[in-house]
Nucleic acid binder design. Structure first.
Lengths: 228, 228
DNA sequence: ATTTCATTTGAAAATATTTTAAGTAAATGA
DNA sequence: TCATTTACTTAAAATATTTTCAAATGAAAT
């Protein structure tokens, strides 16, 4: 099973069709955007697990789209482009692209490069078994245990908690959390955050009224601590 | 500055020479191996930050070397090969290669792909900029500790203290502090400053009546000192 | 079509922070 | 030294933020 979601940003219908069929038949979920503007909005409202970006878009340069995405988007971006000059390749890679394929590309190779990119970035999550204190978060198994009982967390709750676990001790601002969990289109929806923090505390804290793990930093954000 | 160490595993002397010069002039440290056996040993004895691996080695198939490396080596491996078949590329990527360049390659592109691979795998933990004297201010985590206990500071208190920390030893005028913390509309509200300085002292000073960290410069402003 | 579960939205109650004000202490300059 | 200015402390009033609860919406699964 795969389930990773891939956003295609490309103005050519035929390419999108081809990619869509190829990817779907390999168990990826696919969403499509036909322009830079559309792509940026879709990425912001529903961040995918990987982005395939064409450099030759009608409304805005692909390099510029790449830069805008990289201001907040940390997952893989693979460039697909007819441009084959070394200059374009180097520029794209240095602007944060993870890979660069020249059109026309071989679909088998594209799939392998997608698998590789997803493997590498998820590999980073695999801090084996990260936290302890009658609370165990296993980022590689995607499980959370309290007193050795597995706790059921929804997708959003887990994303939020894993962000905290990866940044133990640091204050994470509302802005940052909303951007990473919901996407940059939601940076002023602090209410979402409050509701989900409350749910998380209900599930992982001994006494949700006296939280020991998720500490409120009023006016700023939240901080995750594990006292050792 | 760079300092990353790269291991080249390739049997062709000319390629190794070329790579060596290119990489060294880009501030990489380079080590070379001319065969699979040699490469595996060197990698094991002194694990580099990245490996450039040729698939066409005399003593052992590159694919096999790749598999052996991946049993324990987690950092980037980039394949350099004359083999351009999709089969080889897919196989290498699925065996754990991070990237695959077909020889002859463009050096600029190789360098960019090396930078990209290193960027992705290195999760840069910012060195926490700290001040010491049983008082620790971690600007990247946004936390302040006194005697190793985290002190709760409000947003305004923290902004003020971090301003002091960033300007240790300098006298900061009322005017400047008010402008930086509250904004230019508040430059004559020195009362705010007095209240918040008092609160800060209560929280961080051993004896708030004999402040050691935040020193009053009467008529001018305040100065933050840490005696080492 | 129905049920279930997660997410979103809204609004009152509880907390925390900032501002204001008033009394006291300390520093400065003639 | 005294008069004056500047600084400190404290606590209440005013604001702002966070928590909590619950209902509405939406999406997926049967």
């Amino acid at each position: 099973m795969n389930n990773s979601e891939i956003l295609i940003i490309d103005d050519e219908v035929q390419i999108r069709k081809l990619l869509n069929i190829t990817l779907q038949s390999n168990d990826f979920k696919v969403i499509e955007a036909a322009s830079a503007g559309e792509g940026l909005i879709m990425a912001a409202n529903h961040p995918p697990d990987l982005i395939l970006l064409d450099l030759g878009l009608p409304d805005e340069s692909g390099h510029s789209v790449l830069k805008k995405l990289r201001e907040w988007y940390a997952k893989p971006i693979i460039i697909l482009s007819v441009l084959s000059s070394e200059e374009d390749i180097v520029k794209a890679l240095d602007n944060g692209a993870n890979d660069y394929l020249i059109k026309p590309f071989r679909t088998g190779e594209l799939l392998a490069r997608i698998r590789s990119a997803l493997r590498v970035t998820s590999h980073e999550d695999k801090g084996p078994l990260v936290d302890c204190n009658n609370l165990q978060i296993d980022l590689s198994a995607r499980t959370v245990k309290k007193n050795n009982e597995i706790i059921k967390l929804t997708a959003t709750e887990y994303t939020l908690l894993s962000l905290f676990a990866k940044n133990e001790g640091k204050v994470l601002t509302h802005h940052y959390l909303l951007q990473q969990v919901w996407g940059p289109g939601y940076i002023d929806q602090s209410q979402y955050l409050r509701v989900f923090i409350a749910q998380l505390r209900k599930k992982i804290e001994e006494d949700p009224n006296q939280p020991k793990f998720i500490i409120t930093e009023s006016g700023v954000g939240y901080r995750f601590v594990i006292d050792k």
